[in-house]
Amino acid sequence: MQYDVTLITIRPATAGKAMAKLAETAPAAPGKLLACWQSEIGNLNQILLIREHASAQAAADYRQGIVESEDPYGVGEWTNSSESDTYAVLPFLKPLQPGTYGPFFEVRTYLLKPGKAASTIERWKEALPARLERSPLLTCMNSVSGRQTRFLHIWPYPSLDKRYEVRQGAIKDGIWPPKGGGENTLWDQRSDIYVPAPFSPIK
Rank of each mutant, 00 (worst) to 15 (best):
A28C: 04
Q189F: 13
R108I: 15
Q168D: 15
A54C: 07
C140S: 09
D71H: 10
E133G: 06
G42V: 13
V144R: 02
S145W: 07
F92I: 03
I47C: 00
Q57T: 10
T25C: 04
Q148S: 08
T149G: 09
I41W: 10
R11Y: 15
D161V: 09
K32H: 06
Q148I: 08
P114C: 07
Q97W: 13
T9C: 11
T9A: 12
E68Q: 12
G31C: 07
R63N: 11
K179Y: 15
T25P: 01
G76M: 01
D192T: 08
L33T: 04
P129W: 04
T109I: 11
Q46S: 02
P98L: 04
T6G: 11
K32R: 07
G76F: 00
K203M: 11
L160E: 03
N80R: 12
P30G: 03
A130D: 04
L137H: 01
T86D: 02
R63T: 10
N80S: 09
S69G: 03
Y73A: 02
T79K: 01
E52M: 12
G180R: 06
E68L: 05
T25G: 02
S143F: 12
T120F: 08
Q57M: 13
K116N: 07
L138W: 01
G31F: 02
E183C: 02
Y110H: 07
G16R: 09
Q46E: 09
A88S: 14
G174I: 04
A35E: 02
P196A: 05
A20Y: 08
G102Q: 03
Y62G: 00
T100L: 07
K113N: 08
A117S: 10
R190A: 09
E122P: 06
A118E: 12
L137T: 05
G181W: 12
T139M: 13
A28R: 06
K125L: 03
K162N: 13
P91F: 08
I41A: 06
N43F: 09
G146P: 02
A117E: 10
A117G: 14
T139R: 01
E70M: 12
G169S: 15
R11W: 15
K113D: 14
R11H: 15
A23P: 09
A18Y: 01
N80V: 04
R147Y: 14
T9I: 10
A56H: 08
D71A: 01
Q148A: 03
V166M: 12
G181E: 05
S143Y: 09
A28K: 12
Y62W: 13
R134W: 09
A18M: 02
Q148N: 07
K116A: 07
L132D: 06
A130H: 07
P196L: 07
K125H: 11
P12H: 12
P91R: 10
R163S: 07
R134P: 04
I8N: 05
R131I: 11
V75G: 00
E83M: 04
G146R: 14
N142A: 05
W187F: 14
E68A: 13
K94Y: 10
S191R: 08
Y87G: 00
E24V: 10
E77Q: 06
Y3R: 00
Q2F: 13
E165K: 12
A26K: 10
V195S: 01
Y194E: 03
Y62R: 08
Q38P: 02
S200M: 05
L49E: 05
A88K: 06
P72Q: 02
L112G: 02
